[in-house]
Amino acid sequence: MILHLIKDTPANSSALNTCLRYARKQTDCILLSGNAVNCLLQAEVLAHLADYKIYVSQEDVAARGLTRFLKQIEQVNYSEFVALSLKYDKVISW
């Protein structure tokens, strides 16, 4: 039960790919914030993430004009982020 936090886009960082190596599809979740949310526009990335529970930071998505593109992904505000971090045993910030 781990919440994996991804803050940087895979274009600049190994964070997402490293995380995907170890994240468990059944029990973990992945929360994308900051520029990491941009990669969800890419079909290839979405396909990789298809079997994982994915959340995105609502503020970061809205700030970038991506809300209408990412309707299928569950968005969380900061108080929901706080609650999620407590629901999982630990948070790994990649």
Binding site: K7, S33, G34, N35, S57, E59, D60, N77, Y78, S79, F81, V82, A83
Partner: peptide, 16 residues
Amino acid sequence: GASFNAYQFAKAALAS
């Protein structure tokens, strides 16, 4: 942007 995210998280945690 990560420091701003940290600040928002801290604020939300305290507000909760």
